[in-house]
Nucleic acid binder design. Structure first.
Lengths: 150, 150
DNA sequence: TTAGTTGGTTGCATTTTGAAACCGAATGGA
DNA sequence: TCCATTCGGTTTCAAAATGCAACCAACTAA
């Protein structure tokens, strides 16, 4: 009756969700992208219970998404910073953000915009493209059978 | 002590995760992209308990991601098909998939590839771009403060 | 020195999840 | 026509995750 694991799934989506598919992990990663690094910063920003945050940070570190390093301010505490593996979640976070921007707000509401630091303009909507760069719709793609190894 | 809701969050990412941030919803959406439409198809593919699947389909329909329509085969049952809002999750699913492809498999393993139906070649890695089309790294972006309404 | 902050852990109540049993309606076969 | 089986669920109940508050140890500031 444990939570169903998907780490043996043949599907890459399932394997990703097995690691970051819970309620808090991707929000922690989001905050890490925004420069937060201390336990207390995450806790205050997210409003998550400290035991939950503690458990999540542990698994994110164990999964190689965050690294626990000595604090930059010289204090005796730890900073939690994104590894390259964690930074590669950027498109995931942006995709979630853009869908939320489009569907998560009623017309009267607004949200803090994420913009290009250089030009100040909003980033472009993500597009799924083929090898040549042409945009692809969902129905333009097919899942091939698993290749058999020798 | 219920699960903390994030539907009031100012962050679009949090609002998205409030809707599809659980263990199963995005896998149901994935299967819907692959053409699955019947309760039994989802259940067999996912191996999820039927009560959970039933609850998830209900909320996905309530959230406007799936629509419940009369079955295409003329039987008395229902099909669950993606709405335009659901189809707009395509970049999310692809982002999760590409991260899983890169980090979710050991070197000996392989996974079914998702390819361009027209040319048979794998789809390109998603890239976050600025308004002009130039690729952006995470540190090239900044979150602006919430704009004040009049 | 002592009060407060930081970064947790522990304990417990509530909620969610998961497995299996159950059930009615639709379907199929003899 | 009758019976069995599948389909699409709901109910029941145990196990696990979540959330809150209390606690605590180490560091820090006054």
């Amino acid at each position: 009756m444990k939570r169903t694991r998907m780490d043996e799934a043949t599907c890459p989506i399932a394997r990703t969700l097995d690691v970051v598919g819970d309620w808090w992990s991707l929000l922690i990663v989001r905050d890490a992208f925004l420069g937060k690094r201390r336990f207390g910063e995450f806790q205050k920003s997210l409003g998550v219970a400290k035991n939950i945050l503690s458990a999540r940070l542990k698994t994110l570190v164990a999964d190689g998404i965050l690294a626990s390093v000595p604090a930059a301010d010289g204090s005796a505490f730890n900073d939690y910073v994104l590894t390259p593996k964690g930074r590669d979640l950027f498109p995931v976070v942006i995709a979630l953000r853009q869908w939320g921007e489009k569907y998560g707000f009623s017309s009267g509401e607004s949200f803090p915009p994420l913009v290009d630091a250089a030009c100040g303009k909003p980033i472009a909507p993500l597009e799924v493209r083929d090898a040549a760069g042409k945009p692809l719709m969902p129905q333009d793609t097919i899942l091939l059978p698993l290749p058999q190894e020798a």
